[in-house]
Amino acid sequence: MKYETQRLGKIPFEINRRELYIYAGYRGTATPDEAVLSLIEECIQEVEEASEIRGILKWCQIVHEKDDNGNEMDDVFFIGDFHVKSQALGKNLKGCRDAILVGATLSPSIDLLLHRYSRLQITKSVLMQATAAAYIEAYLDEIQRMVKKELAPEGLSLRPRFSPGFADFTTEYQAPFLEALDAGRTLGITLAHNSNMMVPSKSVTAVMGICKAGTEAVAPMKM
């Protein structure tokens, strides 16, 4: 395994429009009408023009801590230098020896647009939020595809992305996660003052467990 840090700029990817509609509040198979669709296309174009999308991947080893009896604990472990105690993430990573810490952001220029529309055009504000979210998710999906492709020859694959804020992997982990990625310097992601929310707001951190091909699915968990 390469234990490296990779930095990524813009890569070609396709935004998932269905996902965007869901973020914008559409349920089921409902599709926006023409007026909304044309606003959405405007939003996509604006996000593409204004964002300086970038990401970072840190390939790390997972090392479980041992309990008093010397048994490895499923829910207490290091991913590289990043120390985590979480049953949910432990379950997601079960059977993985390595994982990738990933961070990505759309840059502050998007926040300026979001701020502008939230003050002046609420419809566009909602659609812009949805577009930016779908955009960064699509970026991460593409990264995931790239990594999977790279891992495939070794018979390896990836677990679903797992981000702080899910279950007991709380947003309290956002600070050490960003530190592990040196995200302030590499991506410009910081935490808001007195808060666990990331700035720029359209930023994502996630763990991607590297697993044997065929074990990508994680059993549903009860918390």
């Binding site: 914008a24 559409y26 007026a35 909602v126």
Partner: peptide, 14 residues
């Protein structure tokens, strides 16, 4: 009733 969704609601509001 879920026949109109948020963006349309907001467009009407605007």
């Amino acid at each position: 009733k879920n026949t109109i969704f948020l963006p349309q609601l907001l467009m009407s509001a605007e």
